[in-house]
Write a protein that binds this DNA or RNA. Structure first.
Lengths: 159, 159
DNA sequence: GGTGGTGGGTTTGGTTTTCAGACTTACCGA
DNA sequence: TCGGTAAGTCTGAAAACCAAACCCACCACC
């Protein structure tokens, strides 16, 4: 009955798996720039401030993961540009949510480095909601149901 | 006229600032566990799989940043527990969004390690919306307006 | 009153990453 | 021919990470 084995390995988790792809230093900033169409190597170096070799490594990884594509915008001389794939664009809401958190907790209202406008005409205030009922999500409204072995949850709700 | 100086420094950015706090390896996984009320040191070590010294460093940092609190759940013997602050709880939507991305792109529908139920009775499908109009956000509906110097945006919309 | 176990870390020493800056290759324009 | 740009690669030193061992209270026995 080796069965579940109380595990030496960390938990199976989609958060961890996603962060394994985009959680390394600079990866999400690369995505930020690429979403803003600043997708050339030297632009990325300048705008992010990452070492060139690290950036090259990150770009390879993001392309391999299917989050970015690399395409030539000029042959002779060969010049490249990185762009988000549809999967990459689906991470943009994560960036918006992080930005909103930083704007709220790390800055004052008149000190924001960037404001994003939504096509509805208003400033974007990104809000994470339940797709079914449309309500904004709050911690105390969530109940975690582990599906995989290795999970223990002490009491999913309440602060 | 030193003025803006085309900058050697990376851009001012709330995404970068937020990631400076929670973007290091394991930090968001700590938050995951703490939101699930698995906030004790040995639980965190087991569930995350991080080296103990790294975890100790992360916990200090997150407490200093006001994202977690450390409180004794027992004097004699002294035993501690980490919990999210309100600011920490506001990052939970980021975790949910990352989880949803991983579930969609890294797994099959019947292979998900965890399902979260919303108090509305349905499974939570986290969706990032515009707080004003309520619409789900898409890349092509966003227009970035830099407020700070050092920003250049090639063309904020369109893929 | 010693033995073993638990909880929350710190210490150790070796491996891996990161970093800044210099270098490379290819092309263009003056 | 000289200078500049773009997209990287290379280098050696500094920092971070890692697994495992250790430490210090404090139980709970027996």
């Amino acid at each position: 009955m080796a069965a579940t084995k109380d595990s030496k390995e960390p938990r199976p988790c989609s958060i961890a798996d996603t962060l394994a792809l985009v959680g390394e230093k600079y990866s999400l900033l690369v995505l930020r720039e690429v979403c803003l169409r600043n997708g050339r190597f030297d632009q990325l170096v300048r705008n992010i401030g990452a070492p060139r070799d690290v950036l090259a490594t990150r770009l390879r990884r993001l392309v391999d993961a299917g989050i970015l594509t690399k395409r030539a915008y000029s042959e002779r001389p060969q010049r490249f540009e990185y762009r988000p794939t549809p999967a990459g664009l689906e991470l943009e809401p994560v960036l918006m949510t992080l930005m909103a958190w930083g704007d709220r907790h790390l800055r004052t209202a008149d000190d924001r480095p960037m404001v994003v406008e939504h096509s509805c005409g208003n400033e974007l205030v990104p809000t994470v909601t339940c797709a079914t009922c449309g309500d904004r999500i709050h911690h105390e409204d969530l109940i975690a149901h582990p599906q995989a072995p290795g999970w223990t949850v002490a009491g999913p709700t309440a602060a």
